[in-house]
Simulated scan of single mutants.
Amino acid sequence: MLSPDYVLSMARYNAWQNRQMKAALEALPEAELRRDRGAFFGSIFATVNHLLWADAMWMSRFADWPKPDAGIDDSTTLVPTLAVWGAERFRADARILLWAERLGALDLTGDLRWSSGATGRVQVRPLGQCLAHMFNHQTHHRGQVHAMATAAGGEGWVSDLAFMPGEGPWL
């Protein structure tokens, strides 16, 4: 079972990573952000849009956020520009952090039940597994964006949890 401290650490890590990723993407030309690079969602911009969409979708299940209007097929076009994405990303990360700060141990027990647009059926999974998936999904796609951004000639960013400011006993 996941602990509230783990969820809060992952929420902090998510926000830290997204701030660094945003800075790296703002330094790239628009054409590089939208160029199809052969990744699962094609471009850098499509991938960060999907990631924002997925976070909103998972949080609609965990914390009663409004469910995104678009389905997974349209997740890559959630917002039109990097500036809009940055504002929405900042807001989502702040909301995830506030939610994580309020979690207690009992909030992380039991199963999550939802109707999946991806599978077309009702899913039931342990809540902790779903939370771990959301944070793992974020890391997975940010890794793709990191690789695409550096291949486009941009700067990478530090992604090691051990180097997150203020986190862990090792600092």
Rank of each mutant, 00 (worst) to 15 (best):
H50N: 10
W53S: 14
W53E: 15
A56E: 13
M57T: 14
M57D: 06
M59C: 03
M59G: 06
F62L: 15
A63H: 01
W65I: 07
W65V: 01
P66K: 05
P66E: 12
P68Y: 07
D69S: 11
G71I: 12
S75M: 10
T77C: 10
T77D: 10
L78K: 12
V79R: 10
L82I: 05
L82A: 02
A83I: 11
G86I: 01
R91L: 13
A92W: 06
D93M: 02
R95V: 00
R95P: 10
I96R: 11
A100N: 07
D107S: 04
D107R: 07
D111K: 10
W114N: 04
S116A: 01
T119L: 09
T119Q: 11
V122C: 10
V122A: 14
V124P: 00
R125W: 12
R125H: 15
P126N: 03
L127I: 05
G128H: 00
M134R: 08
M134L: 15
F135T: 09
T139E: 10
V145S: 08
H146W: 13
M148C: 05
T150H: 00
A152S: 15
G153L: 10
G154P: 03
G154C: 11
G154R: 05
E155N: 14
G156I: 14
G156C: 03
G156K: 03
